[in-house]
Design a protein around this nucleic acid. Sequence first.
DNA 1: CGCGGGGTTGACTTTTGTCAAGAGTTGTGG
DNA 2: CCACAACTCTTGACAAAAGTCAACCCCGCG
Lengths: 249, 249
Amino acid sequence: MLESWIARLEQFAPLSGEDKLELGRLLSEPRRVHAGEDIVREGEAPTHIHIIVSGIACCYKVLPDGGRQIIALHFPSHACDIHHGILSRVDHAIGALRPTQVAYIPHENMLDLLERSPRIAKALWRSTLNDNAILREWLVNIGRREGYGRVAHILYEVYLRLKAVGQADNHSFEFPLTQTELADALGLTPVHVSRVISRLRAESLIVLRRRAVTIIDPEGLKAVAQFSPGYLQMADQGPEGNKSNTLRG
Amino acid sequence: MLESWIARLEQFAPLSGEDKLELGRLLSEPRRVHAGEDIVREGEAPTHIHIIVSGIACCYKVLPDGGRQIIALHFPSHACDIHHGILSRVDHAIGALRPTQVAYIPHENMLDLLERSPRIAKALWRSTLNDNAILREWLVNIGRREGYGRVAHILYEVYLRLKAVGQADNHSFEFPLTQTELADALGLTPVHVSRVISRLRAESLIVLRRRAVTIIDPEGLKAVAQFSPGYLQMADQGPEGNKSNTLRG
DNA sequence: CGCGGGGTTGACTTTTGTCAAGAGTTGTGG
DNA sequence: CCACAACTCTTGACAAAAGTCAACCCCGCG
């Protein structure tokens, strides 16, 4: 399972055999984290980078009034905090949304490896650029779409991202977020998310049952989401979405 | 004026005299861009990085329905697209909001310099981390604050950022965005922005006249904004806000 | 002096939030 | 295998926030 992270990195830039061996050597055995538990707490000085092996994690901030905003979702084979190596304290937390396994690498080893292998540095750099592009699109999603399109958009994005790591078949995938968590990610309330999902169901765009999503009408869903897949840097067709990414060779 | 960018970079990591000379050599003479004109168009393959010398630029996306979301504001002495060096096409545009002067550096020269000077690489890396932190906070702002707090928050953030580059005195600064542009940055409509600003005025928190802002009641404004300055990585006190940043030495 | 962009305001609509009750689900322990 | 508790989801009634449309004002500028 650890290899899937390395495989994903290779989609961003070619790695040598030695690169892959080194990464494999540095990666710890995965640690189990309970649902709701933090992997990195807000304000602390992180010492490792983390890679999601299984489960789902998220990056979030909590406001003084208790409101929570989820800033990013991290799926298996994602590194969630590459940028932490250089910060003395982080302005956000990383938490597990479900029971999750995370592998990790100490910052000093990672920084050392980055200096020795420009290929790994390039792949990681591009993978963080990809994360940033998603973050920008989330801002657009929350800022300029109303609830109906917002939920449609995140569902289609998650579908493409899970498909890219082999966790979506056809147009079905596991999506084990509660509606409260979805609301925290979308800047809505849980009640409103529930209503919007009812409407997406009523319009025969999706089926959502037991935390599993099936997209019945992909074109319809993309239309209400005003979805343009360019930001994901991966194709929106076929079972191997990542083949034609547009990052420079 | 070009030197102010280099001075800002030095707040992120120390540079050698040679570093500064090299950066100065690479920087072009500034080019003038009209208000409303794009510096980088969406979808194109960028060839240079750009540094704002005077004026204001922004990073934005346009939706199929015509809505625009401003994703970031770029003030003088900011580089606005360091991350472009590696992308074959960008998913967002960069445009001037007012008459603006931009200097630029060809990507190949920049990449070459980054390889030769790890200090410059570190400073630039941290400066992009700073930009990302601001982007995360914008997501929180739009997702979890209502209009009143949202406007208060962006005003206080802009105040701190302008103060850090010497463009704010006491609690006053030039803020030449139209309310329509402010609305595009905040996920609101211009009409609603106008109403919210009226209220901020009525509550004696700010004065806004002729595109100049004076914060009358900083503590009050921060309270309605639920402002916590940590994400900016700069202190929120005194005329030299950047002295005690929390990036690792 | 008139033009045009930006700002303000009012009346009205739509979207979203709030509160509360009830139904369904999940997980646990006996 | 059942009972129970704790969550989660759904729905309704109502309230608040934000959007829409339109008129008008203000002010800089040719």
